[in-house]
Simulated assay, not measured.
Amino acid sequence: MLDFWCPENYVNAEVAPVYPMGGAASRLYSTLTRSLSSPLPLPPSCPDPRRPADTNPDPDLCREQKTASPARPLDPAELLRQCEEALGDRAPRLHREFVRLGDGDGAPGSSVRVMQWNILAQALGEGLDSFVRCPPEAISWSRRKYLILEEILTYRPHILCLQEVDHYHDTFQPVLAGLGYGSHFCPKPWSPCLDVDGNNGPDGCALFYDRSRFELLDSVGLRLSAMRIPTNQVAVVTTLRCRTTGRCVRVAATHLKARAGWEWLRSAQGSDLLRQLQNVDPGSDAPLLICGDFNAVPTEEVYRRFAASPLGLDSACKKLGADGATEPEYTTWKIRPTGECRATLDYVWYSRDSLRVDGVLDVPTEEQIGPDRLPSFSYPSDHLSLVCDFSFEGTEE
């Protein structure tokens, strides 16, 4: 019988050598920028993540990136076309419907689009994750980078929360900066990517925001704790002001501990994140968006803690259910040596009294995903992206 229980089977890495952004990474970056036609500034070298987590890390990690956009901004439609062209004779994309909700009565163009996605760290996909039914060609970075960018460009989120990002400096930050996004990246203190030969540095959480829609007010990287003991999991918390409405919103991107048997740790990490969000600005009435791969099914304690939090949170993807109270059947579906894993682990939590859900991207069917599951030639990650449109409650348009 196939096992459908599957908080991710990652193991914390021991300290390993860091491979600087040179050699293969620089060649990759050059290839990417040539193929996308617009020259971009070379990214900084990846700092050593082994420095103590309680000291101030390299300023190019764990802080808002101030790098200017290229002199010639990238055109999203042209970039999407080039991604599709680079993929050539590819398998069809997963067709997904946007479910519009009756209570989404905001003015056209007023919604804020949020995307949550564990994109699958390249080092893990090629190394520790062991997707036994995924052809090696489908997991190659030369292909996946275009599929990931294609997914982002298709939905054009105003706020983008990513986990397992190990190509931040050489790919996502410069390319998305060219599209007008600001960003903040926080790596895991002991990333399992560092155990993989030829890795591109540590993976972590990254939060991007559309500068044309939002003004940055503040951004911090957090290391999550359990019973006051620092853990290997992190979060990025960014405060933004909407240029359209003048309203502020606090956005968190996080990735909780993986694997069965660690439910107590996920619960403690979730509680720590909720506590820190409450303490950031206790008097603030800014609504919250908390996006992440929680590695927890809806019956876990950490899910219940978020649902019952005094912060007044609800899960946006529950809107896909007929009763508005049921999560999707799955947000990840993969086959590993231990069996098949089909579960809901990813969530977009929002302040239910301050934000209104206008629409949610539905999940693809089993037939669309295919018998070999994810990742595949059609889709670059073992996790599905979650895309939700929100409006501020009580905003006069």
Rank of each mutant, 00 (worst) to 15 (best):
265 L>V: 09
239 T>N: 09
226 A>H: 02
251 V>H: 01
214 F>T: 05
211 R>A: 15
220 V>Q: 11
215 E>F: 01
223 R>K: 05
215 E>S: 07
176 L>H: 04
184 H>S: 12
247 R>P: 12
235 A>D: 00
227 M>I: 08
257 K>M: 15
170 D>G: 07
210 D>G: 04
218 D>N: 14
235 A>S: 05
240 L>V: 06
193 C>K: 04
229 I>K: 00
156 R>A: 15
180 G>R: 08
147 L>W: 01
243 R>N: 00
190 W>M: 12
238 T>A: 10
165 V>W: 06
194 L>F: 05
191 S>M: 01
200 N>C: 13
179 L>A: 11
236 V>Y: 03
163 Q>Y: 03
252 A>S: 15
184 H>R: 12
147 L>G: 02
237 V>C: 15
183 S>H: 10
145 K>M: 14
147 L>C: 02
156 R>P: 13
252 A>T: 14
210 D>I: 01
223 R>A: 03
154 T>D: 02
248 C>V: 11
194 L>S: 04
226 A>G: 10
238 T>K: 09
182 G>C: 07
172 F>V: 06
160 L>S: 08
215 E>L: 05
241 R>D: 03
240 L>N: 03
209 Y>S: 08
190 W>P: 05
248 C>I: 06
219 S>N: 01
160 L>T: 07
236 V>H: 06
214 F>D: 07
233 Q>D: 12
235 A>F: 00
171 T>S: 10
263 E>D: 14
188 K>F: 00
233 Q>L: 06
246 G>A: 07
195 D>S: 15
146 Y>F: 11
197 D>L: 14
160 L>W: 08
146 Y>A: 01
146 Y>K: 02
148 I>Y: 10
170 D>Q: 12
251 V>T: 04
226 A>V: 04
208 F>E: 02
258 A>Y: 10
152 I>D: 01
162 L>T: 13
244 T>S: 09
255 H>A: 01
258 A>R: 03
186 C>V: 12
231 T>P: 03
179 L>K: 09
192 P>A: 04
261 G>M: 11
173 Q>V: 15
228 R>P: 00
197 D>V: 15
258 A>N: 09
207 L>R: 03
249 V>I: 15
237 V>T: 14
225 S>Q: 00
145 K>R: 15
169 H>G: 14
191 S>V: 02
199 N>D: 10
173 Q>G: 12
244 T>Y: 04
210 D>P: 06
193 C>E: 05
237 V>Q: 13
255 H>M: 00
194 L>W: 05
170 D>I: 10
261 G>W: 11
248 C>K: 13
248 C>F: 02
187 P>G: 05
160 L>P: 09
166 D>A: 09
171 T>M: 13
147 L>D: 01
215 E>Y: 00
